[in-house]
Amino acid sequence: MSPSMIGLYVFVLSCFVGYHVIWGVTPALHTPLMAVTNAISAIVVVGAMLVAGHESPGDGTLPVIQIVGFFAVLLASINIFGGFVVTNRILAMFKKKEK
């Protein structure tokens, strides 16, 4: 089986996992759900890091690949930090009313 085919298996099965997990989320927490999915979809940062960390041409030319990678890392990590911090803020609001 080619790597792309394995990827397809993983993809389809993950959609089923997602389907079941997400229906279990209580409607009151749909906003933090969006915020946290936002944060984890920034997992593209893995790809961004590979681009930004690519070997430099070493001939003194502009490191185009690395600059593209830098912006990709920057945007993805705004998402990671922004998404997780705001989710935490929202959930803390729900938490404190338990007492």
């Binding site: 792309s4 990827g7 993983v10 993809f11 997990v21 759900l33 997992i43 790809g47």
Partner: peptide, 21 residues
């Protein structure tokens, strides 16, 4: 992006977020 990189973490996470939305 996960398919491009052959990275199952990205594929899984993308699928979770995609189905959530």
């Amino acid at each position: 992006t996960g398919f491009t990189l052959g990275n199952n973490l990205l594929i899984t996470t993308g699928a979770l977020v995609g189905s959530s939305g």
